[in-house]
Design a protein around this nucleic acid. Structure first.
Lengths: 221, 221
DNA sequence: ATACATACTGTAAAAATATACATCATTGAT
DNA sequence: ATCAATGATGTATATTTTTACAGTATGTAT
């Protein structure tokens, strides 16, 4: 994250502070900065004052470790509700909440993400390059979509528990269901899919719509 | 974020520290904590030492503001690549990256989110309750999906620029395109849709698949 | 050539912070 | 009934951290 306005030395100071906070959880003292850069505390102080003018950090005099890095406070994305007509839509007042994935998909703390590959779930609207969020703590119910390890390979399928076996159904007629016998080793449910996120560009939109419409025709065969 | 193991007083201390860091960017001194809770600095110190034993924070003696809150370091969600067979899939080594929406949808810094309502874009796989990410800085190209303000009402449609007008096409045969004359006032493009996120539970999955299959039948009529 | 901003050194002093005792009250567990 | 853990007070002291001066040097734009 190079700040174009900063001089080389200032950037070094900035980087050190950033790293220090990452490691320690609190900002460094002037002495710590100066030691690292082999300069005097006073020189470090000057840097902070100059950088403050450039608005990349806040330096509070007389406060030990009174350094706050600005800019990269880009946390969450504002979400606007459906504003009442008349109001300027994009105003602060219409911010309903701030987006944080963890809040949005509200799952246990150890959710993880996996990219979808292939088209075996395309009828459930999961296509290649989508990123699915998986909750490993959740026990799958029939019909839910799960990520499972079948013979060492991760796969995304619909889950159905039957008398003596577990059936993993793809959502695409081109593919056959996978049947897991109770004795099967090398099989493991990694978790339940609780969300998807898709990055859209024009090409992706077009592909999606094509596939979607093709489905209609295919189903008449 | 209530920590079950903490006593009430400890929770108060924890909450204050959290809030203080949020506001100032660096942790408080013992004196600041003690002042807020109307106790002696020494008492505050004891709390920190006790809480450290409970692993909710780190307190470094002799270091001013030497407090680091632990636990809520839950930033981003780990994303696993498709692991080579044999490797334990869910191991740290397979973490490809850490999920941050802003990185994922890679847009200008002022992206925002809006919830989708209605089914006018259902054929482009945008359904009610989906959250779309919108980039206000991006200029729409023909065929891209945009969020626009039409007579004060926000709406999501496909964008097409024609000789004398702009056409906003829904992706659902039930609805008619909206045609905007150049002179039209009260019309404004708010941004281009660059991503979607959907929270999935079993009910939502079922609804999606139902609608998706129904599309096939409808399109044969 | 001459400001001006950056990038320092070095030292003493001032201010901000943390800590060591000594002491006490309350509560829950053995 | 007593121990251990929590939650405190209060004061003097030690330590950490910042700051005020007083200088020096270098490059760059005017």
């Amino acid at each position: 994250m190079m700040n174009k306005n900063l001089t080389q030395r200032q950037q070094e100071v900035f980087d050190f502070i950033q790293q220090y906070i990452e490691v320690n959880g609190y900002p460094p003292t002037l002495a710590e900065i100066s030691e690292k850069l082999s300069i005097q505390p006073n020189a470090a102080r000057t840097h902070l004052l100059l950088m403050q003018r450039k608005n990349v950090l806040r330096y509070v005099p007389n406060i030990s470790r009174g350094i706050e890095l600005l800019k990269q406070k880009r946390h969450g994305i504002p979400i606007y509700g459906t504003a009442p007509a008349g109001h300027p839509f994009l105003s602060q007042e219409n911010v309903v909440e701030n987006f944080e994935v963890r809040n949005y998909i509200s799952a246990s703390t150890d959710v993880f993400g996996v990219y979808v590959r292939g088209d075996s779930m395309k009828d459930a609207m999961l296509v290649s390059e989508d990123l699915v969020f998986v909750d490993p703590k959740k026990t799958p119910r029939n019909g839910e979509i799960v990520v499972a390890l079948v013979e060492g390979e991760p796969t995304i399928k619909r889950y159905y528990k039957e008398a003596n076996a577990i059936v993993l159904k793809p959502e695409n007629k081109k593919y056959q269901p996978i049947i897991i016998q109770k004795s099967d080793d090398g099989f493991r449910i990694l978790g339940v899919v609780i969300g998807v996120i898709r990055s859209l560009d024009k090409k992706k939109i077009d592909t999606l719509v094509e596939e979607h419409k093709a489905y209609g025709k295919a189903s008449v065969n």
